[in-house]
């Protein structure tokens, strides 16, 4: 089956079994190996990508379901300015806060966190950390205990609000 999709802003076409996992299309057919496989059954979130802007587990999505849709992977988070790459707020914050350890869960967490910062209102109030934890509940990290990851997402949300001129 010919599947046309947009990956990180670029039109791509693959000719694959419609039942091939989106995860394998990304990693093997398109050589975008930033997306990782953890559990392979939708529990761990390591393979999180955005499908039409919403986070999904790429290990449970069939290629046939992606025709005509937009996929964002960790490779698509950084932007470009002045001829160089500019990290997404969540990538910069994960670096600054030390929100990573072995790194297998990190691409999925960065993608999910980018969705949180883009789509979900995270205030500066006392409930912000709890809200971030709820929204990151589908991303399991077996190293860190999540503290620094949550710090990073809260900081990225603050950076976004500051960038938009909000206090």
């Amino acid at each position: 089956m010919k599947v046309s999709l947009e990956v990180n802003g670029a039109a791509r076409a693959v000719d694959v079994d419609p039942w091939r996992r989106l995860l394998d299309v990304l990693r093997e057919d398109l050589r975008l190996t930033g997306t990782k496989e953890g559990c392979g059954e939708g529990e761990c979130g390591a393979c999180t990508v955005l499908l039409d802007g919403a986070p999904v587990n790429a290990c449970l999505v069939a290629a046939g379901q992606c025709h005509g849709r937009k996929v964002t992977t960790v490779e698509g988070l950084a932007g470009h300015a002045d001829g160089g790459a500019v990290l997404h707020e969540v990538q910069a914050a994960l670096l600054a806060c030390g929100g990573a350890q072995c790194g297998i869960c990190t691409p999925g967490i960065a993608v999910c966190a980018s969705w949180i910062v883009d789509a979900e209102p995270i205030g500066a109030d006392a409930g912000a950390r709890a809200r971030v934890r709820e929204l990151l509940a589908g991303n399991i990290c077996r190293c860190t205990g999540y503290q620094l990851i949550v710090d990073a997402v809260v900081e990225a949300a603050q950076a976004r609000r500051a960038g938009e001129g909000e206090p």
């Binding site: 529990e43 919403a54 986070p55 449970l60 509940a137 589908g138």
Partner: peptide, 8 residues
């Protein structure tokens, strides 16, 4: 489940 799974 999780935010990801609820979107699928």
């Amino acid at each position: 489940a999780s935010p990801q799974l609820r979107r699928m």
